[in-house]
Nucleic acid binder design. Structure first.
Length: 297
DNA sequence: GCTCAGGCAGGCT
DNA sequence: AGCCTGCCTGAG
């Protein structure tokens, strides 16, 4: 964590970063609004801001055309720069030794491969809504729906790139989607999820559910609260909590995790016993099978 | 045509 | 508690 930050007037340069790979972080399915332009170069929108990032070497992250204020107010936290992932990985390794029968030490292999993954700290509403959209859906289409939803109902995000003024769109607020209405949301090809999205937007906007309160709740209570919303089951709730509410113990079990557990942990995996970073471990495992062993069935 | 995509609700036993 | 089944849509 002994990184240090400097500005050259245009860019923020973060040196001495460890356990961080832009490519891995933005290619592990946690975030739908960033694209990997080329290797070690990503660009996207979060918290109503555009950001372009470059990783010239493993220990350096460059935030292009970024002010100190934006770095401190948004990106420092968003990128989880102050979390000690070396310690997190050590604890995960220890826990898996104790709590799972893992003779092949799959978790350690997974952490060697995807050790640069960081769990982003995304916006609560965006995370919840995005993972409602994600159900029974594939990633390119999820991204397309969210992009079009943002273009229609999100605030404009202006920025300069290569000296030119550009416009993008923030993720729509709950208010904006509520006011757009269910039919408009259906028009975005969201299908049977339209009513879920609309109802969630309504509940959040009218304060029938408080995402700020969910944020402060312990994991189980937080999940139960989110699952009061139609269209939010255990998997969607866990994803939202892990990626948008800072609940690193939330452990999403999707079809891939079921395959991983069946294949590598036939005796089962005691998720509760994996501790406060179980969800981060889940991401390493997920990345591992997706990119090393995708034929796993 | 078919199946599948990082699920969920509703109805059934 | 666990096991079906249908569901919008688009890609292969």
């Amino acid at each position: 964590m002994s990184y240090h930050v400097e500005s050259n007037g245009n860019d923020i340069i973060i040196r001495g970063v460890r356990d961080f790979s832009l490519a891995q972080t933005f290619d592990c399915g946690q975030c739908f609004r960033f694209t990997i332009n080329c290797e070690n170069h990503v660009e996207g929108i979060a918290f109503g801001r555009h950001i372009e990032m470059y990783q010239p070497d493993p220990e350096t992250i460059q935030l292009i055309d970024c002010s100190i204020e934006d770095y401190e107010n948004i990106w420092r936290n968003f990128l989880s720069l102050d979390d000690d992932y070396s310690a997190i990985k050590e604890q995960i390794s220890e826990r898996f030794k104790k709590c799972s029968n893992d003779p092949d030490e799959i978790i350690n292999k997974a952490m060697d491969l995807g050790g640069g993954i960081r769990i982003l700290k995304q916006d609560k509403w965006e995370s919840l809504c995005s993972f409602i959209i994600s159900q029974n859906n594939n990633i390119p289409r999820i991204m397309k729906i969210i992009r079009e939803m943002s273009e229609k109902y999100g605030e404009t995000v202006c920025y300069y790139k290569d000296g030119k003024a550009c416009t993008e769109y923030a993720f729509p607020t709950a208010k904006a989607l509520y006011e757009a209405g269910e039919e408009a949301i259906f028009q975005l090809k969201t299908g049977f999820r339209a009513k879920y999205i609309y109802n969630a937007a309504k509940a959040v906007y009218l304060n029938e559910i408080s995402l700020d309160e969910v944020y402060t709740m312990p994991g189980d209570a937080a999940a139960a609260e989110l699952m009061k919303l139609k269209g939010v089951g255990p998997k969607v709730a866990a994803c939202a909590l892990l990626f948008g509410f800072g609940k690193t113990d939330a452990f999403p079990i999707d079809v891939w995790m079921k395959r991983i557990i069946a294949r590598y942990y036939p005796g089962g995996l005691n998720v509760k016993a994996l501790g406060e970073y179980a969800g981060i471990a889940q991401q390493y495992l997920f990345y591992y099978v997706r990119y090393i062993n995708p034929e796993l069935t």
